[in-house]
Design a protein around this nucleic acid. Structure first.
Lengths: 154, 154
DNA sequence: CTGTTAGTTCAAAATTTTAAGAACCAAATT
DNA sequence: AATTTGGTTCTTAAAATTTTGAACTAACAG
């Protein structure tokens, strides 16, 4: 495949980004490779070789990525290999899931408010505001996607 | 302080939430404790005892939490202790920072687009859309806060 | 029916992260 | 001046995560 230094560095940075989001290093790098690779879908061995990782690491990470969403594979008749690729058209779901993770802190905050003293009214008010905004954000997020969609048809 | 079982469990769940967001376990639990505790600000030793953690773990985690934003401390004249507390009024910044982390993936995506073949137009179009929406989201987030602010004065 | 391809699975090694303990320090107290 | 308080810092130990390597399997090929 022969990736230049710039691309290799970019793969690592994309990997690190995903690591920070909780993914294991190898899985992050696989995503990086898939973003950067010219070929639209890569085989198990192309991935393994390009990243110099073991078969087991490749297998485990690919299955994780398929399981959790960002990757899928396609096959071709008369070819036993799987061709793995990013589900890029899926970015709406991926992004929504990510933002929902943040928004869901409100569930915990609501439980906190349930069991707090009412002696600390300023504190409680702030938490209440936060919960309230998270509720609002959850409702508005789909509208925002609509709004963007419309703004771009024109 | 004597927290009941429900509160202890809630502290752990808040801890785990923050661990998933990349914080170390002890720091996450300290946040949990601060959300749940009746006292509005806690001393070093109250935190240490309530969570049964070492002085070094307490010190390191508190300094990290102060460094990264969510915690501050106050002092009182004639009292050498620090009283640590959540910066709850800061939730806007904290939330914005978190969402910005996600949005900033667009920086990497733009670099990806810079160095990709133009042979994979569907793929590239999807990435372009994603970048475009992330740009849009970054612009709209402050507006969303304004809109919420106004919706609640009424 | 033997070998090869395209992986999977599992135990163990390597690495990283986390927390503890002990030594330390500066300010206040006795 | 010695002790206590309220921490900090550094080294090491423990725990968790990540990755490897080796053995395995199922499908197909010769």
């Amino acid at each position: 495949m022969t990736l230049d230094e710039q691309k290799k560095a970019l793969i690592e940075r994309i990997g690190i980004f995903h690591e920070k989001m909780g993914l294991q290093p190898v899985a992050g790098r696989i995503l990086g490779l898939m973003y950067v690779a010219d070929r639209p879908a890569l085989t198990f061995d192309e991935i393994r070789e390009e990243l110099s990782i073991s078969k087991s690491a490749t297998s485990t990470a690919l299955n994780l990525l398929i399981e959790t969403g960002p990757v899928e594979y396609i096959t071709f008749p008369g070819d036993r290999k799987r061709y793995f690729r990013l589900k890029t058209s899926n970015w709406r779901d991926a992004l929504t899931k990510r933002i929902d993770n943040i928004i869901n802190f409100k569930v915990l905050l609501k439980e906190v408010l349930e069991c707090r003293t009412d002696k600390t009214s300023e504190f409680n008010t702030c938490l209440g505001e936060f919960v309230d905004f998270l509720d609002f954000l959850q409702e508005e997020l789909p509208n925002l996607l609509d709004k963007w969609e419309k703004s771009r048809v024109k």
